[in-house]
């Protein structure tokens, strides 16, 4: 099947999931009702204030987190990293705690920017660490990332505990779409813009994935490309943390599945990674909404279980050892 047809198929699948996303939930709203013309003002309100924003949020968060994971993997030349395993998301959470302590009344956008700054700093520490330790491949890189993430998270917890912000920190560090309403998720569109930017610079990121020597040989401004990638990853992490909270494993599982099937050429795989990420997160959210309806299971929990299972299967299948 050609890439173009596969892409249309993927988009079609997303459209189906999107429609499903509109009609699953605690409030009463069904396809038959809409088709039968039984729409009143209340239904419309439910649709536009809650269902559409929530479904869009899941798509946007999924797409951008998956692309962020892919970029992180290209830039560190390691398959086992993603923003939530190298300290990026944790640093964004720390940023949210700090800015909320200092300026409780600041608008969400300003808080998100501060969180981005923290996320970028945290990611830079990670990159500096693996360069300093001359780690290139294998499982040591994600292990270092996890340790760093743990330290940053501990700092965030300490501050949050002192400032009575533990509940907020909980919201930032575990993904949940149940609070998404119109006016509370729009920052996530920035993630889509960042994905587009990643696609524009895709060749450069692919080259960076081949390592510094190859990049420099081909006249690529390697350090600039890495910096651009880290900024994109940090912004995506901060945007998701500030709006819906981190969702684990998306950035790990989706790029691995897609690149196993389609290779590492960024220009080719970024659209598929985005679509698959969006589909996976929305699918998990739908599952969380319906499993014990009318109650909900947060998407972070569903994704944690599903993601861990897929990831273990990936490792067990043992793809070629390129770390």
């Amino acid at each position: 099947m050609s890439d173009r047809r596969l892409l249309s198929l993927g988009l079609l699948g997303l459209a189906v999931l999107f429609v499903a996303g509109l009609f699953v939930g605690a409030g009463k709203l069904s396809l038959a009702q809409v088709a039968g013309g039984g729409i009143d003002a209340e239904t419309l309100r439910l649709l536009f204030v809650s269902r559409i924003p929530r479904t869009a949020a899941a798509l946007l968060a999924g797409a951008s987190l998956a692309v962020a994971g892919l970029l992180m993997q290209m830039l560190s030349s390691n398959r086992f990293v993603e923003p939530s395993t190298v300290g990026t998301s944790e640093a964004a959470g720390l940023g949210m705690v700090v800015v909320t302590m200092l300026f409780p009344g600041a608008p969400v956008f300003a808080k998100m920017l501060v969180a981005s700054g923290f996320a970028l700093a945290g990611t830079c520490v990670f990159v500096a660490l693996i360069r300093r330790l001359r780690l290139k491949s294998g499982l040591l890189v994600p292990l270092v990332g996890l340790i760093l993430a743990g330290i940053i998270q501990a700092m965030a917890h300490f501050l949050a505990y002192r400032a009575d912000l533990l509940q907020s920190l909980g919201a930032w560090s575990s993904g949940d779409f149940s609070m998404v309403l119109r006016g509370r998720y729009e920052l996530l569109w920035i993630g889509l813009v960042l994905c587009a930017l990643a696609l524009l610079a895709a060749d450069r990121f692919t080259l960076a994935g081949l390592g510094r020597d190859v990049s420099v040989n081909l006249g690529l401004a390697y350090e600039k490309v890495v910096a651009l990638g880290l900024v994109i990853v940090s912004l995506i992490a901060a945007v998701t943390v500030a709006t819906i909270g981190t969702i684990p494993f998306v950035g790990l599982v989706v790029p691995n599945l897609v690149t196993t099937a389609m290779g590492d050429n960024g220009r080719r795989v970024i659209p598929f990674v985005a679509i698959a990420g969006a589909g996976l997160v929305l699918g998990c959210d739908l599952l969380g909404r319906s499993l014990r309806s009318p109650y909900e299971i947060p998407v972070g929990v569903i994704m944690g279980v599903a993601g861990a299972a897929i990831f273990l299967a990936l490792i067990a299948r043992g793809r070629p050892a390129h770390g």
Partner: peptide, 13 residues
């Protein structure tokens, strides 16, 4: 220039 170690993450055709 071609160095000894290349393409750590290279699932390219």
């Amino acid at each position: 220039v071609l160095r000894q170690e290349n393409g750590l993450l290279a699932r390219l055709t």
